[in-house]
Amino acid sequence: MIKIENLTKYYGPVLAVDSVSFEVSKGEVVGFLGPNAAGKTTTMRVITCYLRPTSGTVSVAGYDIHNHPVEVRRRIGYLPENCPLYPEMNVVDYLNYIAKLRQVPAAERPRRVKEMIGITGLEDVLWKDIGELSKGFRQRVGLAQSMVHDPDILIFDEPTAGLDPNQIVEIRQLIREIGREKTIILSTHILPEVSATCDRVLIINDARLVASGTTDELVSRAKGADVVTAEIRGPEEEVYQALRKADFVDEFRKIKEGPEEDGAWLTLEIESTGDIREKLFRLVVEKNWSMRELKLEKMSLEEVFAKLTTS
């Protein structure tokens, strides 16, 4: 559906996107995740044909952005960052105006506009000027605007930024519903948003794509994504040596040493990829040591993100 190849964009000397490539297939909801200034907005602006890339190309539903920008725009609904709207227009006039320019046939226009108003819950503010609306309602107008021509592809740039917690929940719910039928790319710098709404995540940092996969995949791919806490009693040096040798251990550290009269219990934090509890237990049995605690903790998406974007 969307294919991005070696996309690079400079603003003068500033490199905003550095040879990014990825594909989005039909029906996917993809989260575009990265800290501020990572290059998310720029990438979206290129896909929507708002800006031309310095090099590389994008094709949307088979149409190239360089040769057929109008065809590309026709197939996309776009909600830009900060949801820019005309404050002096009222909601109905605005949606009609966009529907007209989106070439929704005149006979269908009232029905489409009405449908959008229903989906986004704008019934109470139809005749108000957009400038008088709260941020939450403005965001809904932005969403309604992006879908009025029933596009296959939707691109939302930080759709929940600046909303209060209740509004965030509502907008996410709305996006999930829309995502059942449509291909969506949404950007965010907030992690829970991705797990709440997306099938797949693309992590972008410092203009480069650093990781891509489902949230579970990313969590398990990050080296040392699982942490096992174990309390082991045995000769300290021997224990360390055995752990260093074991191929299922990525890294470990001693976080506490029990009181002497207890017989030197070592509390260890062992990082690994995947669940290693059973292997660890067997090792302890084999060496004839003792064990009195064994606990697995998954690394959270936040920690994965921090790991991927700091290295």
């Binding site: 996309i76 820019p84 709207l85 966009i98």
Partner: peptide, 12 residues
């Protein structure tokens, strides 16, 4: 206002 970003990503 940024409204141009909507206008110029319409099929016009």
């Amino acid at each position: 206002m940024g409204t141009l970003e909507v206008l110029l990503t319409l099929p016009v």
